[in-house]
Design a protein around this nucleic acid. Structure first.
Lengths: 110, 110
DNA sequence: CGTGTAAGGAATTCTGACACG
DNA sequence: CGTGTAAGGAATTCTGACACG
């Protein structure tokens, strides 16, 4: 249950550390959030928290930006990638299976 | 190269977050470091940084403490465990890999 | 021994805005 | 569009110490 993948998605890294890890300025990191490219969580008092997955995505974004790709183009690429990715399809199918399974459950949600 | 295990050992979590994750006070976390039970890294400005592995160890420590085990006893148990655990050898090798990985970071400590 | 707390300082993070372009 | 920066405030973290025990 507590597998390695869970570490990758836990939002526990603060923006200063993410800045060091990615080489991006905090300003850039916040801007990419504004452009819907990343979605950090917030701590109780409002500090952004990122996962290793977010850090990797930011590095990808940084690479694209170096090539001159605009943030809205990067956003489209990320959306497209999601659909094309064969793993995503499996997950979507799995989602449908789960949906059906849940629907036929003898224990309705309400 | 960028395997899941590396996430578990990267020291990127600040003490406030570790406190939330473990339920321990910052005072306690710093004290366990003083007693050589954990070894966080330091950021440029001297802020402690912990890994998920550290968080798990702290939870273990907290459980022992609840049972009334003293910190020096916990220290002995950890040492003993290290020798007995066949996985430890592999982790030590992983540690060397991480050390190399960190050394090649674009952001050296100094 | 293990942990709480007040103390003072230094560094972190946040938001909204102006600037350049 | 994308990013730098100064601004002011609020929360974070650090160390060394006193307290209780």
């Amino acid at each position: 249950m507590e597998n390695e993948a869970s570490y990758k998605n836990r939002k526990v890294i603060s923006i200063g550390t993410v800045s060091e890890l990615t080489g991006l300025s905090e300003r850039q990191i916040r801007y990419y959030e504004e452009r819907k490219l990343i979605f950090p969580e917030r701590s109780d008092r409002g500090n952004r928290k990122y996962s290793f997955m977010d850090v990797e995505r930011l590095i990808e974004i940084a690479n694209k930006r170096e090539e001159g790709v605009r943030t809205d183009e990067i956003l489209q690429e990320l959306k497209k990638k999601k659909k094309e990715d064969p793993v995503t399809r499996n997950k979507m199918i799995q989602g449908q299976i789960n949906a059906r399974f849940n629907r036929s459950s003898p224990y309705p949600k309400k």
